[in-house]
C-alpha cells in the first residue's frame, strides 16, 4: 500500500486519502463476507455448543450432524430437486426464447420489428398487478403445477434487449455471406449468430438461473399447498419465518418443531441457508467477467 501512495503523486493529502480509501474498502469487504462465514461456521458447529454463543469465523466443535439432520427432513430433498429442475428448465427455456426474439429484432429488414420491440418494451414498465395475474394463472389451470415456475416468465424483455444489442454489434458481413451460400434465417441464426453469442448467453444464463434458484414467491402464492412442488427457497423462508423470525424477541413463533428435537432451530436455519447459497457461490466467480460486460452493454443500449 505505501508504494501506491508514492506512485500517485506523493502529496500528503493524497496519501491520507489513499490510506482512508483502503481502510474503507477493507471494511466493505469484511462487512459483506462476515455474515456468510459466520453462518458457515455455525452450520458446521455442534448444535448444543452453538447455544453457548461465541462462534464467529470457524466452528468450535466441528460436526456434520446439522446437515445430516436437515436432509432427513424429506421435504428438503424434494425441495432441492424441484429447485434444481426449475433452474435447469427455466434457464434453457429462457435462453431459447430470448435468443430467437433477439435475432429477429436485430434484423433491420424484419417488417414486424417495431411491433415486437414495442410489445416487449411495454412489459418493462407495466404489470397487470398481483390479483389479475393470480386469476389468470388460476384460469389457465396453472395453480398447483410445476409449470407455473417456467411458463409465465418465459419471455423476459430485459434479456432480449441485452442479447439484441450484442447481436447488433456483430459484423453483418457474416450473415450476408451465409445468405449467399443459400442458408435461410433459421440456419443463419443457429450456425452463425448463436455460436458468436456465447459470452452474452452465459450472462443471461446466469441471470435466469439465479432468478429461478432464488424464487420463492411463486411457490408461496401458487403452489403453497402442494408439498411435492415445494422449492428450497420456499422451505427456507418458512423455517426462517417460523423459528424466531424477529431475532429472539417476543414475536418468536413456534415451528420447525419436528427438527428442533435433536438440533437447535438456529443450527437448522444456518445449514439450510448454506445449502441454498452454495450453488450460487460455486458458479458466481467463473461468470463474473461475463455479467459485468453483459450488464453494461444492455444498459448503455437502453
Amino acid at each position: 500500500m505505501p508504494q501506491t501512495a508514492v506512485k500517485s503523486g506523493g502529496k500528503a493529502s493524497d496519501r491520507i486519502f489513499t490510506a482512508l480509501l483502503y481502510a474503507l474498502m477493507t471494511t466493505v469487504g469484511v462487512v459483506t463476507l462476515y455474515p456468510f462465514i459466520n453462518i458457515l461456521a455455525i452450520s458446521l458447529n455442534d448444535s448444543a455448543d452453538t447455544v453457548r454463543g461465541g462462534i464467529y469465523l470457524w466452528p468450535r466443535s466441528f460436526t456434520l450432524d446439522n446437515y445430516r439432520t436437515i436432509f432427513q427432513y424429506s421435504n428438503l430433498l424434494t425441495a432441492f430437486g424441484n429447485s434444481v429442475l426449475r433452474t435447469v428448465l427455466g434457464t434453457f427455456a429462457g435462453l431459447f426464447s430470448a435468443s430467437l426474439i433477439a435475432y429477429s429484432l436485430s434484423r433491420k429488414d424484419f417488417v414486424a420489428r417495431r411491433f415486437v420491440s414495442l410489445a416487449l418494451a411495454f412489459t418493462l414498465y407495466f404489470s397487470g398487478g398481483l390479483v389479475p395475474v393470480y386469476m389468470l394463472i388460476r384460469d389457465l389451470h396453472l395453480l398447483n403445477s410445476f409449470w407455473v415456475y417456467i411458463l409465465p416468465g418465459l419471455v423476459s424483455a430485459w434479456n432480449v434487449f441485452i442479447l439484441r444489442s450484442y447481436i447488433d454489434g456483430l459484423p453483418f458481413v457474416l450473415q450476408e455471406s451465409a445468405k449467399l451460400d443459400g442458408a435461410n434465417d433459421l440456419q443463419i441464426f443457429a450456425k452463425v449468430i448463436l455460436p458468436l453469442c456465447k459470452p452474452v448467453l452465459a450472462t443471461i444464463a446466469l441471470f435466469l438461473a439465479v432468478g429461478q434458484w432464488n424464487a420463492w414467491f411463486d411457490t408461496f402464492l401458487y403452489n403453497g399447498g402442494r408439498t411435492s412442488l415445494t422449492t428450497l427457497q420456499y422451505e427456507l423462508m418458512k423455517i426462517l419465518q417460523n423459528t424466531s423470525a424477529s431475532g429472539g424477541n417476543a414475536a418468536a413463533v413456534h415451528g420447525g418443531q419436528e427438527l428442533a428435537n435433536r438440533v437447535s432451530p438456529e443450527s437448522i436455519r444456518m445449514s439450510i441457508t448454506i445449502v441454498a447459497t452454495v450453488p450460487i457461490l460455486v458458479v458466481y466467480p467463473f461468470l463474473q467477467n461475463y455479467f459485468v460486460k453483459g450488464l453494461t452493454l444492455g444498459a448503455v443500449k437502453s
Binding site: 426464447s97 430467437l100 426474439i101 435475432y103 429477429s104 429484432l105 434484423r107 429488414d109 424484419f110 417488417v111 414486424a112 411491433f115 415486437v116 410489445a119 416487449l120 418465459l154 419471455v155 435461410n184 434465417d185 433459421l186 441464426f189
Partner: peptide, 12 residues
C-alpha cells in the same frame, strides 16, 4: 421472412 416471424410472433 417466414423464419423471422416464426422466431418472434409466437412469443409476442
Amino acid at each position: 421472412q417466414k423464419w423471422l416471424f416464426l422466431m418472434s410472433v409466437p412469443f409476442v
